[in-house]
Design a protein around this nucleic acid. Structure first.
Lengths: 349, 349
DNA sequence: TGACAGAATTGGAACGTTCCAAATATTTAA
DNA sequence: TTAAATATTTGGAACGTTCCAATTCTGTCA
């Protein structure tokens, strides 16, 4: 009920020492005598003292705020939720706290939350940028000495560190797998061409096609929104082609699910009549029918790596822009037709 | 590159006014002349001024920090991710920022993050408490005048506000539905008996049984971990009963999935051979085979309601403990046997 | 012109910490 | 017993804001 909050001075008075000593105790300094330390700690507990980080940060450099900002573009997508969890794990165990915000792909929102985080004195920022984010948007941050790590989507041109998955290699292995199953006409479906991730995945597709000794056909690349609806749309166009494909690698799992929907609507069964491969390995991929063959990227791992990189830079004081590419791995399930639709028990947790 | 940060004093100097005036501009006071305001704003932009909330909070009450803490027990569960998004929506548009942390059901972790948030001067806290959280844990917070809203799981005994879904009504409607399909022996599977949510759902089950004119049998209530594995275990025990049930309502969707697994392992097909109903309507419920009949609770809605309630209390200055119960609705899909396993197109987004 | 009201501005004094230089206790060595 | 060395403690002076009381400007009115 007592309105006034307990400060370091109250503790000092109660313990019969000076505020400086209390401060020393707070920081775990070895200078202070064991007896006094105990007395002070006891008083803090008794009076219900709460450390005021705001006041402390006022004196110290902002790098000591121990707040790290996390900005994701779509938290409802379990991919990004996992990512946030990965970040939280390492950040928390390093004694930092996480400021998390969701931009829902809005650049304005993103600008707002980043500004707000800055006002709160974050020590570093991890961001999965909203679509069409300007590379220059993070300039002021790094100029102010606040390390920034971009994850999932990279920002070509921005001089910041990034952690992205190996989109090229992933797509290549997907194409390789399909070609080994005997497919000759393999489409690339979905995704918006104006993103760096799209470019990488398409490049991987191309390399895969070439590595398999197939020809690259422009008309087999059909872009669309990177969503379920986009997948439906893309497969529609693919089926309408004169020389229709027999298999497709998709921009991501959402597109792949849409492709399956679209196939069924045309009485084609994904897996047996047409091979489908996704990308990301979202949680639903395994439970879907048919279970989705997809390229597994470990979002939690990306989160952890990103956080580690950021902490390293915070501790180092200065931030070398560094790029980490995390490995991916093809998970073969049913939608590619490699396994007949057997209820795979071993795949569940 | 300039290390020193720009303060309100620098702006004042540059604009030829006093720091007080700059402060007034910052707060949008009507006292300041239009011309000076423009001049000051121009200078702020030019020098790249960043407001230092830490310093401001030092002077003002902690209620003005505009930080609200969000603590969830499992962010990898899309239910809670959605919840966080709901909170973020209203919190953000009210000009607050969200401190989000994940406890992974660890009470120690929860204590840590709450303490840390307090040190950072949060204006309020929204928490989905870890299992077995002590109701007294939030005492200090409310004593310090920091409003707390508990969501999803309520904390009987704690004098804090809460937003929970209507567990009783949801379970009742699930039981009613099964009894209308002709089931006489309906089991209640999964969940830990030491939680308030369990009590509510069980009470709803009981009421439903009685309302349907059936007898309540103790042995049909089988608790287990509220997970997929727990579901497998529970259905095993249920099947082993002398007079085995023909249907089950499950503590949550994870348990329901486990029940389906367990049924299949015994060559029983969920939906046709045994009716299964879940609770929560997680994102996977709709895509599963068979699609899960379940009680839909809107986590994002809970998040929004919780945030609104919290903001109301923050603005009011004083916090009346208040309880909000959000409506739920039975979503009939395939696992209850009401619809034969038709590929339901209309159910997808 | 002087007095007065209202509008606009302004110096401090907080807020709760950390950090520095300096002071005081306690040991050790001679 | 005293000087030197070491261990502990301690007053301020910051940090960047807000807020209060006081001041300086504008007009306006008699």
């Amino acid at each position: 009920m007592t309105k006034a909050r307990v400060t370091v001075i109250d503790i000092a008075k109660a313990a019969g020492v000076s505020k400086s000593t209390v401060s020393l105790v707070l920081q775990g300094s070895s200078l202070v005598n064991e007896g006094t330390r105990a007395k002070v700690n006891a008083m803090m507990r008794e009076l219900g003292y709460v450390y005021n980080r705001g006041a402390a940060n006022l004196r110290q450099a902002s790098a000591k705020s121990r707040i790290i900002g996390v900005v994701v573009n779509d938290l409802t997508n379990s991919f990004f939720a996992e990512l946030a969890v990965g970040v939280d794990m390492v950040v928390q165990s390093a004694g930092f706290v996480q400021f998390l915000s969701n931009t829902s792909e809005s650049i304005d929102r993103q600008r707002e939350v980043v500004a707000s985080m800055r006002e709160h004195g974050i020590s570093g920022l991890i961001v999965s940028p909203a679509r069409a984010t300007d590379a220059a948007d993070f300039k002021p941050l790094v100029a102010a000495g606040i390390p920034v790590v971009v994850v999932v989507r990279n920002l070509p041109g921005a001089k910041v560190s990034s952690v992205v998955s190996d989109n090229r290699a992933g797509m290549m292995s997907a194409v390789k797998h399909l070609s080994e199953l005997g497919h000759k006409r393999i489409a690339f479906l979905g995704g918006f061409p104006d993103t760096a991730v799209f470019d990488d995945r398409l490049a991987g597709y191309r390399s895969g096609i070439e590595a398999a000794g197939l020809d690259y056909h422009q008309e087999l690349v059909i872009s669309s929104a990177p969503s379920r609806a986009g997948g439906v749309e893309a497969i529609g166009k693919a089926i309408a082609l004169a020389d229709r494909p027999t298999a497709a690698v998709c921009f991501n799992d959402a597109v792949a699910f849409g492709v399956c929907d679209g196939l069924r609507a045309r009485r084609l069964e994904p897996g047996s009549d047409f091979a489908v491969v996704g990308f990301d390995d979202v949680i639903e991929a395994q439970a879907a029918v048919p279970a989705l063959t997809t390229v597994s990227v470990d979002p939690q791992g990306i989160g952890r790596r990103g956080a580690q990189l950021l902490l390293k830079q915070i501790n180092a004081g200065k931030a070398e822009a560094e790029t980490v590419i995390t490995a991916v791995r093809l998970v073969v399930r049913e939608s590619c037709g490699a396994r007949k639709s057997i209820k795979s028990k071993q795949d569940s947790e």
